[in-house]
Every structure is written in C-alpha cells, then in structure tokens.
Design a binder for these strands. Structure first.
Lengths: 352, 352
DNA sequence: CGGTTCGTTGACAACGTTTGCAGGATGTCG
DNA sequence: CGACATCCTGCAAACGTTGTCAACGAACCG
C-alpha cells in the first residue's frame, strides 16, 4: 500500500510485489520464475499482488545477475532486402514464443563485423543469428565470438568449423537452373550476378559453370549493379548486344539471374527491350514474379524454413546442446511460371 | 595483471580496467563516459588499459543503474513487408549512429499491443517507434505507454494527441491517384483495398471517394486478400466481370490499388486476364514496378525520409525536447510509368 | 606562513534481480 | 516426548555500472 503512489510513476518492482503480498522479494522471484517449493496459498497471494501491480520483470537486472540476457541478437546485412525481412520475421516469432527478445543490428554498408556486433555483445545476448552471407566470407572476428556464444549463420556461403549454418546448396542451385534451360535446348546461357564479392553468388556461378562445361558449352558471366536501377541501366546497355548474333556465332537465348538483387532490374531491362523470346530463370523467388510477362520461373528457397531452423538450432545451443557444428541445407523448389520454359529463340538469320 | 587470466573467459569489466590502470572504477567510468575532470596522464593510462583489455561497457548494468537503456524499441506489424523493412533500416542507422541499440518486436498476427510491447518496456528502452498503421487504430494501451516514454508512430492513420507521428497524408494520396485517372478521362474507377480494418487504407479510400463524388461519379470499392495469392484469385474472379459491361452501363476502365499488399496480386490478375487496356495506379511503390507491362504507375511515399524523421523525432524527445505532439506529413511523388496513363478503354459495344 | 579554495580521485551506495545459505516451523519416527 | 528430517521462507550477497560525497593534496591569497 505504501508503494502504490510510487509505482504509478515507474514500473513495479519485485519488492513492491513482495510488500503487497506480505512476503519477501526472494519468494516473489521464486513464484514468478523458479516455480517450485512455495505454498499454494502464498503463491496465489503473490500472483494476485503481481497482477494487481502490473508487475513485469526488469530484464536488465535479471540479465546483470544471470550474466546472460533473455534475448538473442540478429545481425542482418540489409533490412530492405525481402529475404532478410522474412528471416527476421521467423526468428522473431521463435524468440517471442520462448520469451526472448530480439536485438538487431545492421552488418552491411561499411561497418566492420566488430562494430556491427558489439552492440549485441554488450547486451549479453544469449546467441546470435548472423545473416550476411551475400556480403562475403565470415571473418576472423565472428569465429572468435562463436567460441563464447552460440552463433548460427544464415545463408552462409559454406560450412563453418565454428558455428552452425542454415542455407541452401548454392552450387546445386546454380546447376539446377542451368540444367533447366539446357534441357529445353538452350546453349548460349548468360549468368548474371550482383558482383564478385558475394560468395554465395560465386558458388551459384560455379554450379552454373559446371553445368555448362559438362554440356560442352562456354559459360558467360556478367555483373550488374546493387540497385535495381543500376542493374536495369547496365542490362539495357548490355542485353541488346548480347542477344543479337555475337562474335561467337550467336547471341544468348537465356539468362540466369544469380541473386534476387539483380532479378528485378534484369526483368525491367528485358521488358523495356521487348525481349519477349528471351528465356529467363532466377534464383530466389520474388514477390510479383507472376505479374511479369511471361511470369517468371524461379528457383525458390524456403526462406521461412531457413529462418525457423536457424532459430531452432540457436535455441538448442542456448539450451546446452553440444553437438558438432551442423550445416543444414534447405530444399529448393523450382517454380515453372513460363519465362524459363521458353524455347531457344530462332536466330534472325535462319529458318522460318 | 591479476585479472588477465580471468578476463579471457568473459568480458572485461570496469574493475578489471581500473586494476590494470592502477586506479578506481569510478575514475575509469569518468574517463570512458563522463570525460571531464581527469588528469591527462591518468586518462591516457585508463584508455590504454581499456583498449588492451578490449573493454566495452556492460549495458545491462548501465541501464539498470540509469533506469534507461541506450536502446530504442521498434514495433513492426510485419517484417516481411518491404515498407517496414525500409523503416527499420533507417531507424537502425540513426540509432547506431548515436550508440543506441535497437530491440524489435512484431506487433501483428494476433498479438495484443501489450504483449508485443512488453518485451521492449521490460528492457527500459528509451523510446518507441511503432509502425502498425496498416493494422488498425492505436489502442488505449499505447496511449498509456506514451505518457511514460517517447513514442513515435509511423504510418499512423491520424494525428495522435499522445505521441508524434510521421507518415503520408493518406486521404490526399487516395485523392491524387484518383484525380490522375479522372484527368485522363476515366469515369468508372475501382478502388481495391486490403480490408476494411486497416485504417490507413480507409483514409485513402475516403480520398478516392471524395474525388469521385466531386466529379459526380459513383465510387466502387472492393477488398482483396492479405496474401498476393489470395488477392490474385479474388481479382481474377472479380475483374473479368467488372471490366466487361456491367449493370450500370459499363465496366470499369481503371483500378486504384489502395495499398502495396494488394498491388502485386492485382497486377498478376490483370496480367493473367490479359487486361492490357485496363489503367492501373497503385499507392505505394513496389520493387519491380517497371518490369510490369505496361510499367506500373505509382504514388510513391518517401519511406526513407519517413524512417529517418521518425528516428529524429524520437531522439529529440529522448534528449528532452518537449514540444506539442507533431504529425509530420512526408511529400508524395507520382511516378508515371505507363499503366496509369492508359486512356479509357473503348467499350466493346461502341465505335470502331 | 596559515587558511581557504579548488581540482582530482577513491570509497560507497544503489539500481532490481537471482540464488546459496541458514533459520524456523512442522511433521514423523524412535 | 525428544530428536531428526523435511519443507518453506527470508536474509544477504552479488552482477557492473554510475553518481554522490568526502577526502586528499596542491595552489593561491591574505
């Protein structure tokens, strides 16, 4: 009763609840968290007092005492990319279900790994989900962090000796889309990536190249910009030439987009250039892919499963599981919508 | 030196630094945070010791002591929606620049406002960015929170008496896209929204209706699903009928998409139905809008500015600014890409 | 040369929670 | 009826930081 006036100003504390229930803070803590070993009658009294005061735990104090926060950290390369947003959504859902908070940080755009992750570590997060796969290889610092803290990498370019990872088999992805086009008779297929720095894209390209070489064909790769507009401009400038008969005896008849980032711009360029007979397959699904004409054939990765598995692995580690580092691969699904099933364009100089 | 072995196991503490520098924790705190009133020589010694030990502050302890965390909370309706991802990116950038962390929570999908925000409040965040505008009106709980804590609402349906808000003028948005179509001769224009519950969409519809009535025309509204696939199915079923001559003497010749959520599905349906002469304008820009055929005319809101201003307002409040609640409106920009500039379709029963 | 003032530093308490430990009460068995 | 075990509860310390307060030394002025 003595605290009633005060507790209006700020949040009610354990001591407030204890006073109201006529007991001690320790017991209140036990009732609300520990659970066991308290009389039913007292438990009820404490519960009542707590709910009347609208008590909820002060997590700073708890974390300070325990040395670990009931929160996980999520480091994302770029929040504006839909892939990462979907990962965040899944991870947040899992965390919330377990009473964990989610602290985020952006790991892209020139920040060092250390600079990006420090705000998370200084909060003693219980674990880390790191999704910077398209940015580059994991650096030394993250390995160091992983020795003290569970870390799960999403969309990691390769298995890590120091942390769990969830993602797709990027090389297989590159291979599958290429084989899809090869099976439909395409021979001159162009691979488009966002830039040589992104290791996941490099792996996808390796799959593409392997498939091409096995078919006795010459791979051809080009890089386009980070932003859709950059990609579009570049693609408009390049695609016109590339699709017409080239020096090597014929223009390309099909394009593989190696990463979502360039898919949009490429599609714009193809539409703008009126290349209606150019086959087009993209790795990563895209909202609105079936609004294109023709609707876009994509190799979809199950982002929700990736996010969910990442969270599951992380919480297993937090709960003390101590198996060897695992690298989970999530199945891919090719969605045939039309653009990837176009036959090779008949060359302008030949039959009918 | 005595702490060296220990500090390898966990993070170095103020006391560790103090011991190494041969001074007290208070002084180290002053050097590293307070700044003033310490000898240059001692300051240097402390700095050296801190960097050698790789010290970084334990924010739980600081927050516990200060009563406020150097972190802000961000409540988002749905992380998979690009709009919110972009807001998060901007807010995170601003927070990081000021040394603040960002704790996120999802406020959608059946969670009560209280349930969503509690994990943030129990961390004593210094302020809140709430972006749930498309979900519904702010409820009482948030108003209560806002009395104790700076709150900025993003994409808020209306000005709030209890918190700052940043967004667009939704009614004007609805009006502008409608007038754009009216100016091109359209008379039978359909407004499509995601559902009557979203108040921002309701406001946009009011703008649409006002413009229509002022032109002496009858507004027509329909609601479509949350997911693109739902919208597509519904739209395919409805649009065919609506665009052919109807009971009122003619089918619709133009469509307004009231919110990004349905734009994609609508575009898919239009493409699938082959309605090439149906004019189409959407509120909210969309990645890939210019890959559609014809490229999609949109009324774009400057999401980056919205996010940045939200952060600025919030930090101004955190710094103690105490002006009246403001409701900032961010300018809109109509991007004519083609789909909105199509002339009214000639009715199948008439001339030529 | 003594007194006062200022500048610099360290000791200490407190933030709210958790948890080991001890103490008290109750019940049971010898 | 006494002793011992069991169960429940409260006390107190600790987590790392910050900020108040006092103390110490030096410098300056009278």
């Amino acid at each position: 009763m003595v605290n009633t006036t005060k507790s209006r100003a700020s949040r009610a504390t354990l001591t407030d609840v204890a006073a109201k229930a006529g007991t001690s803070a320790s017991t209140v803590s036990r009732v609300l968290h520990g659970g066991a070993g308290v009389t039913d009658e007292l438990t009820a009294r404490v519960r009542l007092a707590a709910s009347e005061l609208g008590y909820s735990v002060n997590r700073q104090a708890r974390s300070l005492r325990r040395g670990k926060d009931t929160a996980i950290g999520v480091a994302i390369e770029d929040f504006t990319i839909p892939f990462f947003g979907r990962v965040v959504a899944e991870v947040e859902r899992a965390a919330h279900a377990r009473g964990y908070g989610v602290v985020i940080t952006c790991a892209g755009s020139g920040r060092s790994e250390e600079e990006a992750v420090e705000p998370l570590l200084s909060r003693s997060v219980a674990g880390l989900v790191v999704a910077t796969g398209t940015a580059g290889a994991p650096q030394g610092y993250l390995a160091e962090v992983a020795t003290e803290l569970p870390v799960v990498q999403v969309d990691a370019p390769a298995a890590s000796p120091f942390s769990d990872a969830v993602g797709i088999d990027n090389e297989t992805a590159g291979r599958r889309v290429t084989e899809h086009l090869l099976a439909r008779g395409h021979r001159r297929i162009l691979f488009v990536g966002s830039g040589p720095a992104a290791t996941t894209v490099q792996l996808r390209r390796q799959g593409y190249e392997a498939a091409m070489r096995e078919a006795g064909l010459e791979p051809r790769t080009t890089w386009m910009g980070y932003l859709p507009s950059e990609t579009t401009e570049r693609a408009v400038a390049e695609l016109g030439e590339l699709t017409s008969s080239g020096a090597d005896g014929g223009g390309i008849t099909a394009v593989v987009s190696g990463v979502a980032r360039v898919t949009m711009g490429l599609a714009s360029a193809i539409a703008r250039l009126g290349l209606r007979d150019l086959a087009y397959v993209a790795i990563d699904d895209l909202a609105g892919a079936d609004a294109f004409s023709p609707p876009l054939t994509v190799l979809e990765q199950d982002v929700e499963t990736i996010g969910a598995r990442a969270a599951e692995l992380l919480f297993a580690r937090i709960d003390g599981w101590d198996g060897p580092p695992s690298h989970e691969l999530v199945p891919l699904r090719l969605i045939e919508r039309g653009s990837g099933e176009l036959p090779p364009r008949v060359l302008s100089t030949t039959t009918t």
